[in-house]
Design a protein around this nucleic acid. Structure first.
Lengths: 166, 166
DNA sequence: GGGCGCATGTAATGAGTTACATGATTGA
DNA sequence: TCAATCATGTAACTCATTACATGCGCCC
């Protein structure tokens, strides 16, 4: 349900339509998260049906009308609840990349090193993408900053793992 | 598909039955990952059908037979491929807990601090659980060690975020 | 004899993605 | 005129989970 919190939080700042939301997430938060168009429309429709958000059709010319969404009072209440719930606890992330590490010793050390070297390169380019990301106002920037920290910690950890292989 | 890699990797070390696999994951890797019984059985059945693993019925008395699995040659090949694929790249984890941070400034600072204090406590108890986890032979231990590092980094980051709120 | 642990399985559901489909506008 | 962008929607599918169901063996 954290994706609903994300949508509510963004809509709370500006009323937006589905396409615009996805576009914003894609370019502003691309390094941290993603949300597919179909998912956003689905969640928005659901929240509209549940009365968390209200929709205003904005017709411009003859093109498909924009469905611009605003938080309702109910939506605001739920936003407040979800935000507090999210902030007060920590959801353990899942690291699929750890599974390979678990079986690292089933490979000869030189090959393991070579593969991890590739992983390091991937991490470095992710880090560069994050560094290059535009800054955002207020606490939205925390998400980017956290990602940057995380990637740096992962690099440091990998270097250590590789040291122990030599 | 990383869960299949996990199952293959464990089966490669010892032949095991579904129940035993889940039990092992539950107690040895509980702090890092989980796999529900239904999921394990589903994946095992699928891999058996695809010929990655072969099953031997081990009847003991009159109780439901253990279906003990071994890697086939095909399974071994696929394991090698999946392992290399996993090790050579980094899959960006998703941090649901960042979504709250993104909207931190929509709360008054004292309340935000109080909520984050709770999050810190949750993190600390996760960290304690990891510290207390039994050690494993070989590179399996890397998964635990990584989790420990990660949790410590998260704590440090949170402290910093909280400093900036004061 | 009653409850717990061992051992499996299936049906329903949820969450999200892919892929497909539509149609207007804008700019090269 | 042709491609790209804007804007929406839906059907099919995958992956994983929850909840339910079965039945033996063991120990108190």
């Amino acid at each position: 349900m954290d994706r609903k919190l994300l949508l509510l939080g963004l809509l709370r700042e500006h009323a937006m339509h589905g396409y615009g939301l996805v576009e914003f997430i894609d370019q502003a938060l691309a390094t941290c998260t993603d949300m597919k168009r179909a998912t956003a429309y689905y969640l928005l429709n659901q929240m509209a049906e549940d009365g968390w958000i209200v929709e205003t059709e904005m017709q411009e010319g003859n093109r498909p009308a924009r469905r611009v969404f605003n938080l309702s009072d109910k939506g605001e209440t739920i936003y407040q609840e979800m935000l507090r719930e999210n902030l007060s606890s920590y959801t353990q992330p899942y690291f699929p990349s750890d599974i390979g590490l678990a079986f690292l010793d089933s490979l000869p050390a030189p090959e393991a090193l070579r593969l991890l070297e590739q992983r390091v390169q991937g991490l470095e380019s992710m880090l560069q993408a994050v560094q290059a990301a535009p800054t955002h106002p207020g606490s939205l920037q925390l998400v980017i900053e956290h990602q940057r920290r995380h990637l740096r910690a992962e690099l440091a950890w990998l270097e250590e793992v590789m040291q122990n292989l030599v």
